[in-house]
Design a protein around this nucleic acid. Structure first.
Lengths: 83, 83
DNA sequence: TCGTTTTATGTTGTTTAGAGCATAAATAGC
DNA sequence: GCTATTTATGCTCTAAACAACATAAAACGA
């Protein structure tokens, strides 16, 4: 199921949730993505300055995909990722 | 219609296309997003090092939304954003 | 074609990401 | 509770983002 990431904070939450679903620690994920554990920690807590390359590295490691859409009026269902 | 951005390059293409649909120049968009025209140029051509904050600023200005999904087997239809 | 607008490129200075390492804080298991 | 694991914080250093300004290159319109 797709998740809307309206902020780095929400993006971090989604990454964290996915990582845990995969049974990975921050260190595991860091190794998979070629990053460091400290950076995963920052990203998961909503770091604004993260680079695109880091995000894509994480997505590849977690098998996630980035989709862009028009911020239209969506079904109320999507009020799920608020925090 | 949603677009998959599998790389900064594709993300840049989507941003550029949306900007033109809105009838904006790079300078217009830069002003809207609080960035500089040179940066829009780099982002649209696929700059890997762009910061999340810049991407979100652009998305807000263009009324775009970021969605995360599992990179599952999608309908072949989505072979549209390849370049 | 010429002149204008738009986009790409280049430079310098400042800020910050991220590596690498240490360690503190928090969490989980017993 | 205690211990081990995991996550968060703090440090220095190097590389790179971004602002700001200039200007070249490209695209557009009469």
């Amino acid at each position: 199921m797709p998740h809307i990431a309206r902020s780095p904070r929400q993006l971090g939450n989604i990454i964290q949730r996915t990582r845990k679903q995969r049974g990975l620690t921050q260190t595991d994920l860091a190794n998979l993505a070629g990053l460091r554990q400290e950076m995963i920690s920052k990203i998961e807590t909503g770091h604004e300055g993260t680079k695109l390359s880091s995000i894509y590295a994480l997505f590849a490691a977690l098998d996630l995909e980035l989709i862009i859409d028009i911020r239209s009026q969506r079904p109320a269902k999507d009020i799920e990722d608020i925090f």
